[in-house]
Simulated assay, not measured.
Amino acid sequence: MDLATIWFIAIAVLWTGYFILEGFDFGVGVLLPFIGRKNVDRRVMINAIGPVWDGNEVWVITAGGAMFAAFPAWYATLFSGFYLPLLLILVALIARGVAFEYRAKVDTDRWRAGWDQAIFWGSAVPAFLWGVAFANIVRGVPVDGDQILAAGLLHLLNPYALLGGLTTLSLFALHGAVFLSLKTGDPVRSAARRAALRISAVAVPAGAAFLIWTQLSHGKTWTWPVAVIAAAALVLGVLLALRGREGLSFTATAVSIGAASVLLFGVLFPNVLPSTIDPAYSLTVQNASSAPYTLTVMSWVAVVFLPVVLGYQAWTYWVFRKRVTREHIEPVPAYGGGGGTGSGTAPAAPTG
């Protein structure tokens, strides 16, 4: 196995970690207006992901940086052709991050409601568009002999890609609901369990359809077990949620997301961006990679720093492992009258 293949696997691992960890963050954001009917409950939901959401985003930054360094041709062609959806994702992530920090800056219901909408859309848009983007990568795009991708937004919104977007959106929402049932106390916990069951009515059939479509159209013999694991883990996660086995249910949904990601990268290899114009124009692990020297330097950097990053993130999850309840939320001071209707500035809680 050469370094180019190793780095393809490493990038697949980074994206898989991102989808699993940032997936429940997106899910919590999507569920914010539906589960958090009161401000105190919305604060419980935000505080549940508050210590980890920005650390989870490091995975996508690292994945993008690794793609740029290890496969510059893949990065350049992909980001130029997918410019609009990736720009929308970036804007949504920026708005979401600002919303987490600014939500508690002013003590008015109108102020908080506006930032809550930013959290919702900043979570829902990436959750949907990541599925659209990766479905198109697997399906193939019109890459010509000069490695130029000529695809407009409407070309990317094909039925397979839209199903991929629905799958990631519903699966992340389910993952987030299970996370909330694991990480919060009542009444958020009970509302999250009910939400998980309702979301499963969309996530299970959409996920199953997408896995079957992917496998039948692009799959290989060895990816069949991966598709089965993804589907089985999804169903098992729902059944465990029904029985109140929250820890196991969260593990199952994480396995389902991870297996689905492995399936996508598995059916893609050895291509990194298939061409629908001519297979000879496809970008592959070999023709899109950097020079061996660059890959060697990257490998040594990863060996040194990756354990540090993983250790720090694991420590963060361990420190903030306890449930968040209403009792942990301090009352919001009312400046100018009336418990959340004043116009002054409230002291800012770190997580909203």
Rank of each mutant, 00 (worst) to 15 (best):
V138H: 12
L248K: 04
G185F: 06
G237M: 02
A349W: 08
P33M: 10
S170M: 14
F34L: 12
A252D: 12
T221K: 14
G65S: 08
A173M: 13
G219T: 09
L14V: 03
W300L: 15
V40S: 10
Q117Y: 10
Y317F: 07
A233H: 03
V13F: 01
G23K: 05
I9S: 04
Q313P: 09
H155Y: 14
T223G: 05
H328G: 14
V226E: 07
A231I: 00
I6Q: 12
P205W: 10
V238H: 00
P274A: 11
P274S: 13
I6V: 14
W111D: 13
L263V: 10
R189F: 08
I212S: 08
G244A: 06
A12N: 10
N56P: 00
I94L: 13
L129K: 03
V267N: 01
R112L: 06
A104Q: 03
L163G: 05
A135N: 11
V91K: 04
W224S: 13
P279W: 08
A63Q: 10
W315N: 04
R323D: 13
F179L: 01
I89W: 03
A66E: 11
G165K: 15
L295Y: 02
T77H: 09
T251K: 10
A206H: 07
G342D: 11
D41Q: 15
W111R: 14
V301E: 12
K322Y: 06
A288N: 08
